[in-house]
Simulated assay, not measured.
Amino acid sequence: MHLKYYCLLLITLLVTHLSPAQQQRLPQQRLPQQRYYNLGDFRLENGQVIKNCRLGYRTAGKLNANRSNAILVPTWFTGKSENKLFMAAPDQVADSTRFFTIVVDALGNGVSSSPSNSKAQPGALFPQFSIRDMVRAEYELVTKHLGLPHLYAVAGISMGGMQAFEWLFTYPTMMDKVVSIVGTPDQSAHDRFLWGTQLAVLERGKYSTDAMKTVGALHEMHLTSPEYYHTKLPTEQEYKKYLQAKEAEYVKNNDPFNWASQLRAMLGHDVFRDRNRTQAIRDTKAKALVIVALQDHMVNPLSALQLARDLNAEVLELTGNCGHLANGCEADKIKAKARRFMAREED
Rank of each mutant, 00 (worst) to 15 (best):
L3N: 02
K4N: 14
L10H: 14
T12E: 15
T16M: 15
A21C: 00
Q29C: 10
L31A: 04
P32Y: 12
N46Y: 12
N46D: 11
N46H: 13
C53P: 04
Y57G: 05
T75K: 04
W76N: 13
E82Y: 15
N83I: 09
L85K: 05
A88C: 13
D95R: 10
F100E: 05
F100W: 05
L107Q: 06
G108D: 04
V111G: 00
A120D: 07
Q121K: 03
Q121Y: 13
F126S: 01
S130D: 09
V142W: 14
L148S: 12
P149R: 13
P149V: 09
Y152E: 05
A155P: 07
G156C: 10
G161T: 12
E166C: 03
P172Q: 07
M175D: 00
M175W: 10
D176C: 01
K177V: 06
K177A: 02
I181N: 00
V182P: 01
T184L: 13
F193Y: 08
T197A: 10
Q198A: 13
G205D: 02
G205S: 07
K206L: 04
Y207V: 02
T209I: 11
D210L: 15
A211T: 03
V215S: 00
A217G: 00
L218S: 08
H222W: 04
L223Q: 13
L223R: 12
T224I: 00
P226F: 14
E236M: 06
L243Y: 06
L243C: 06
A245V: 03
A245S: 05
K246M: 11
A260R: 04
S261I: 06
L263S: 05
G268M: 06
D270K: 09
V271K: 08
V271M: 08
R273Y: 14
R273Q: 12
N276Q: 06
T278C: 01
K285H: 14
A286Q: 06
L289K: 07
I291D: 00
L294V: 14
M298E: 03
M298T: 11
S303C: 15
Q306R: 10
L307V: 07
T319S: 15
N321G: 10
D332E: 13
K335L: 02
R340N: 08
A343N: 03
A343G: 01
E346C: 07
